[in-house]
Design a protein around this nucleic acid. Structure first.
Lengths: 353, 353
DNA sequence: ATATCTTGGTAACATGGGTTATCAACGCTA
DNA sequence: TAGCGTTGATAACCCATGTTACCAAGATAT
């Protein structure tokens, strides 16, 4: 039987290894490590140091990150897990990422985009030792699955930070907007303008803590102002504009009376306004609207929503800081909750009753 | 001198290694590899196989990705290098990413976000052996630096794909919109409506091939229609809306006459329209506008731009496919250029002269 | 009984670099 | 000259895996 040749591989010019540098500089590989890593302790005279540094430069040597990760146990990589309905990466992700990036980049940490897989959403990155910490934006699975998946990470006190939704499991930190407070404030703005029949189109409150918090903030505002909660005014949505539109349509067809809407998020508000107009109503004359976040940040639309704009960049940054601290720390830090303040935008979508 | 204790580390429950599985299954570590990787050749009876699989499940074993990468030389990671003025990740990045993701995810490739560092933009990821291939969105440095930085990768035929701008260096593939064709088409739309004095606000044409191609497309359209190129109508911008606004302002202050604008990108168009309105002009009655791309994809604004919408998801997907093919292939593939078709949007920003 | 084949599996090496115990050579002192 | 400290560096081990050459034991053929 003829021995089979290996398939011919791309011919790659050998990338310099420690050994190559060592040979060129006439020292042992260990010495190269000692010098290039500036390891304290061993005394290497400047002449030798320089010889090694020159050799390294000449060869364009950079230590193999994989080998280094194997021996140090640190990959210098942060896993970022995004999840959104049907879309691993969604629009606003970029400002979160930029915030986190601003923290990690100076420390030479890289960002690895997460699994996005329904079956093994998180554990993979951790159990395969691929990352040193994890930033989670929106829990990837239902609460039950989470617990199972997160079990490994919890037991290991694996450095984690959740953004935009609290994890059910008590693991790592949580950074977000004060959704409860923001929702309460946005509802109060309507109440202060004299509104009493305020509809709330919610987010997926069963699976997402921010949606739940906003719903509770809405209820609290009503309570504190002596307005009875009318369940027919609460429409359970999922943060998508189309769903919000359908719910509103339905409510109006049912003949539910209201003079204002507090929408759980920007997209819901945007589509609600579109629908109201389509049905011949004026915003805000006929219906006032507040929300959380604003469609198309920083850009003028033909209305200016009264809203509470989350500081997504700030949230990403803060989350990065907490996570980095957690990674650096030798001790197990307690879980921390952290709210990043947003901005109230006083638009033109409220009209006094 | 008292011997110093190592700082106490987080106590982590030991993550199962191959060795642990081997012990539990009463076999050698090698056998574990053979079974779990389904290595062809060695004959392991089903009973033993099952014992190993059970042990692995029981321990939640997943092979250490780092060790595996070291020995195989494949990290199963794609580097994605984004660069934009001041912003490592910009808004539309998400659709590119989603396109690329749709290709890589099924093959178990992960995405590592690139350097974003002016000094060592690309070489790091490659030379440190961190990634198996690279997707580059917008060249990170000036053309000169690129050549120097890319030298290593070129010599190695390192799998690369550029998106949104050709690299000067001949390395890997290039996927983009047909910028020349699109620009020509958008200029022709204006010409067909009778316009002859058409201003073009460009992108950074000295550093970015897409901006250059669009400029050339604009010129070509004029030429083919017998319209002389008037340099005072070409304003050299950089794709940012604010810059475009300034340039337009300047041109108008200079008293340059024009009846239409072909804007190099969406942001430029958007800000141009805002400025024109601010200066009391109507779009399109006084000034017609076309562009490439549309501000705020998929959402209605109070105008509908006549534009050529790039298929960013498609570009990301195509780039992913070419890159993957390149990574999988043992041979050195020739450089390929590939245009992904976009969509013409027939808006309302053209008015016949 | 001996040679040969098959089955089932393992030992050993390689990957590239961090870390530490150790060591040779040299100069100085008693 | 022996003993000792210092300087300058290195050999050896470790990380967790993939891979291949090899081997022991039993079965079969001669």
């Amino acid at each position: 039987m003829a021995e089979q040749d290996k398939p011919s591989k791309r011919v790659q010019p050998r990338i310099a290894r420690r050994k190559d540098v060592a040979e060129l500089a006439q020292v042992s590989p260990s010495t190269v490590s000692l010098v290039l890593n500036n390891t304290p302790g061993p005394r290497i005279p400047d002449a030798t140091r320089q010889r090694i540094i020159d050799a390294a430069n000449q060869l364009g040597y950079q230590p193999n990150a994989v080998a280094r990760a194997l021996v140090t146990g640190k990959t210098m990589t942060i896993g970022v897990v995004f999840h959104y309905i049907g879309n691993p990466f969604y629009d606003t992700a970029s400002s979160w990422l930029n915030g986190a990036w601003s923290v990690f980049h100076p420390h030479e940490y890289r960002i690895l985009l997460g699994e996005g897989d329904e079956e093994k959403p998180l554990a993979g990155l951790y159990r395969q030792r691929g990352v040193d910490g994890m930033l989670m934006l929106v829990p990837p699975t239902s609460p039950e699955d989470q617990d199972k998946e997160l079990q490994f990470m919890i037991e290991a006190d694996f450095p984690c930070c959740a953004i935009g939704a609290r994890l059910k499991a008590d693991i790592g930190d949580y950074v977000d907007t004060d959704n409860f407070g923001a929702a309460k404030m946005m509802t109060e703005k309507l109440i202060q303008a004299g509104h009493k029949r305020i509809m709330h189109i919610t987010g997926p409150h069963l699976f997402n803590s921010s949606a739940m918090d906003r719903l509770n903030g809405y209820k609290q505002a009503l309570k504190e102002n002596g307005i009875e909660i009318d369940e027919s005014l609460i429409r359970y949505g999922n943060y998508t504009g189309t769903m919000g539109e359908d719910l509103l349509n339905e409510a109006m067809d049912e003949g539910v009376k209201f003079t204002a809407i507090f929408a759980a998020n920007a997209s819901t508000a945007h589509f609600a306004i579109k629908l109201l107009r389509k049905r011949g109503l004026d915003v805000p004359k006929d219906v006032s609207i507040t929300a959380i976040d604003r469609p198309y940040q920083n850009e003028p639309l033909d209305y200016e929503l009264v809203t509470y704009q989350q500081d997504t960049y700030g949230i990403g940054k803060k989350a990065g800081e907490l996570l980095l601290e957690r990674i650096m720390s030798d001790e197990v830090l307690p879980s921390r909750n952290c709210y990043v303040e947003g901005t109230f935008i006083d638009g033109n979508t409220i009209h006094p009753v």
